[in-house]
Each structure stands twice: as structure tokens, then as C-alpha cells.
Amino acid sequence: MNFLEKVGLGKSRSAKDAKERLQLVLIHDRAGLSPGRIEALKDDLIDVISKHVEIDRDLVEITLTKDRDRQRLVADIPLAPPRRRR
């Protein structure tokens, strides 16, 4: 909150917050995948992929996104640095 908002002159714009939070929560609602389930999915995915290639577990990211008319699970799976792989 800036000075103007504190003295009641500016816009507090909580509606903007509401909109952003709604957009995020609806992405999960519509896919039927809660953030917790995505974490579980991520752990499973890491286990499966690790059987084949060494990956950097801490940097794996799974995100639900939406483009025009389709929702997507996007996985970003960085491999372990080359020297550790050998």
C-alpha cells in the first residue's frame, strides 16, 4: 500500500487481487488437479525419469497453464550437470 492509498486517496484495487487469485484457482479447478496433487505427480514423474537419466530434482517444475482453448501441463526437467552425469 502506498502513501496515497493509506490516506484514502488512491485506489486500493483489491478487485485486481481477486481477479488474479480467481484466474489461478480456476486453472486448477478446471483441470481437477489441486496444487497438492501436482506436487505428488511431480514426485512420481521424478522417480520415473530418474530411472533413465539423472536429473536435478530441486529444479523440476510442473505448471498448469492455459492457452486459447486447452489446458496444458508443462514440465521443465533440468538434467543434472554433465560432470555428475558421467
Binding site: 485506489k11 478487485a15 481477486a18 481477479k19
Partner: peptide, 16 residues
């Protein structure tokens, strides 16, 4: 409330 940015407006809701 919509005017001062403290309530979701019609356009926001239709977009969502």
C-alpha cells in the same frame, strides 16, 4: 466499489 477498484467488474467476470 467497482469504480474504486474494490469489487470485480462485469468485464473481469465475463473474461474469467
Amino acid at each position: 466499489m467497482v469504480r474504486r477498484g474494490d469489487m470485480l467488474g462485469t468485464e473481469d467476470i465475463l473474461e474469467i
